[in-house]
Amino acid sequence: MVKGKSWSISLTVVFLILGLLLALQFRTQQNLTSSLEAQKTTDLVAMWRNLDNKRNQLQEEINQLQQQYFTLKIDSGAGNEAEQTLEKELTRLRMSTGIAPVKGNGITVTITGDAPLMYMDLVDLLNELWASGAEAQAINDIRISAFSSIADLEEGNRIYITVDGHKLLYPVVIKAIGDPHTLEKGLTFTGGLIDNLNNLYNIYPVIRQEQDLELPAAPLPQWQHIKPQPSADKNNKTEQFPG
């Protein structure tokens, strides 16, 4: 009985060890069969070919993508350039139409209150300054646009000169941006406008060359009766961008 018992204990131990060994061996076996080194040379060569093919395809795809990338990059560069050109043109037109405030060198023409100034004299002065190359003008800090109206207004026993409906108080100061020397010459040549004002009307405007004059913006025109002349081309565009 005792003998039988020791046998069974030994056997159990042996089985345990065997089982362990088997499990270990099994795992080693699995690793071996799935490892590259366990493959047949022909299979390895096939794999190599496959990988090589794949690499070539990937390389080709990269070439194509790179080309696409550079084309896009150049296009976006051109887009930026077009945008900059547009921005520049917009700024230029905003300044020239008067809807943006501007600064620059130029002259001021100052007329004091004791002068018998009439609104036509201001029309003449502005016109003469435009003709002399003025790029922007303002009277008493009212910016002159293509639509500015200069008139007079009788109030009680006083007559005011108005610019776009605003009454002018003295001194009346015209600011004109442009080449200061040319602007001044345009007014002061013999037989010129200032001569006429002096001799005919006893108006003695004071002209000063200035640096960095600042002119405010004019309001946007309020148009009620006009629209762009439609052309076949434009029609399509307005359909694309309504409003």
């Binding site: 887009g79 077009a82 945008e83 547009l86 921005e87 043109e89 917009l90 037109l93 905003r94 020239s96 139409t97 809807i99 293509a146 946007l220 025109p221 009766h225 006009i226 629209k227 762009p228 002349q229 439609p230 565009k237 961008f241």
Partner: peptide, 23 residues
């Protein structure tokens, strides 16, 4: 953005007198 700028420019060109107008 370009289309937006172009639209703005169109309006400004109208104000500036660079476009024929009818009315």
């Amino acid at each position: 953005r370009l289309a937006q700028l172009q639209k703005e420019l169109e309006t400004l060109r109208l104000y500036a007198g660079l476009v024929p107008v009818a009315g």
